[in-house]
Design a protein around this nucleic acid. Structure first.
Lengths: 177, 177
DNA sequence: CAAATCATGTAAGAAGTTACATGATTAT
DNA sequence: ATAATCATGTAACTTCTTACATGATTTG
């Protein structure tokens, strides 16, 4: 279980509401961690009762109250402990590759179409990442140092997407033989 | 839920026992699908009652009976339907990158060590994949055609591992600045 | 005026993990 | 002898998904 730690990782950077966290998961963290808003709200409840986080309620005019969560000292320590402990390799479950693996039961044209869809998806991600990289390139040395670690994860995103696109070219060529 | 379909994908290639499937998941499929033996046995039970698979019991001398499962026509159709339906993108949950993302709470040397561990892991995988690629290279045209789709997924494995290694070099250089 | 976004949750059910359980055979 | 592999499962627990629920504000 590491949703807890992913939430701590985000709150360690900056406090935020469940909704904020949900958006941050969907944003710059989406290619290495995802979580639904239902998961997040339930997790925050547990973490609050475990004193890993604290809450501050902000009333807003018109809108419903906003619960803003902060990481506590206990939470920070839990995060440090978790980072230092050996990480078990993440289990990957990629339905797309399973479909290809067993793809002989359908026509090659179906598979080619699937791969092309994937290309579009990965190109979109790559374009989004390129924008974030430009932001980084525009920073001064100090700023760059501050965001170095998130930038490192972004680079993994970029290299991963490029690998997918390179693979797709190969795969389509193989299919057309 | 696609463990069901991953099992169908394996049984469509060749019949096997729960234990066999477990090994096949750990082998050439591990970098895009993983499943524990407990999951597999429970899944097989469900799939059997849904007539997606059939079973044949083989008694072995000395060893306990072996239950060998085969995909049924209903199962094959379920597999085809699933392959053709649009696949939602798989959610990735990579604890390693979360640790890096929040890594400012620990010393850089801890992070460097983590990255180096990862390099070792990915190099091992790449070596294993290279062996499988050699096998493919040694095949004649007909054989190659027969295993083309699994080979395509293997190529994704190779390109993915190369991306990790390339990233790790970059990341270590960044850390040492 | 409709759709999207902001903002928060509950509840049931499905899926996955961890721990426990057994027992033979084969390799070191 | 001991560890690893073969071979199969159950049970309790945790986690995740899907569906439901509400209601205001902002954008097109």
């Amino acid at each position: 279980m590491s949703l807890k730690h992913a939430v701590l990782a985000l709150l360690q950077k900056e406090e935020g509401s469940g909704y904020d966290l949900s958006k941050r998961f969907k944003g710059g963290m989406s290619y290495f961690w995802s979580a639904s808003h239902q998961q997040i709200y339930q997790q925050l409840k547990k973490m609050l009762s475990d004193d890993l986080i604290a809450v501050r309620v902000e009333s807003q005019d018109g809108k419903p109250d906003k619960k803003i969560y902060q990481i506590t000292e206990l939470g920070t320590q839990a995060l440090i402990d978790w980072i230092e402990e050996p990480s078990k390799m993440s289990r990957v479950n990629d339905a797309f590759l399973v479909k290809l693996y067993a793809g002989e039961v359908v026509d090659n044209s179906v598979l080619a179409a699937k791969i092309k869809e994937h290309v579009v998806h990965h190109q979109k991600l790559l374009t989004a990442f390129a924008l974030l990289e430009e932001e980084y390139a525009g920073m001064n040395k100090q700023q760059r140092k501050r965001v170095m670690l998130p930038y490192m994860t972004l680079r993994k995103g970029v290299l991963g997407e490029q690998a997918w696109l390179q693979w797709a070219e190969e795969a389509l060529a193989l299919l057309e033989q």
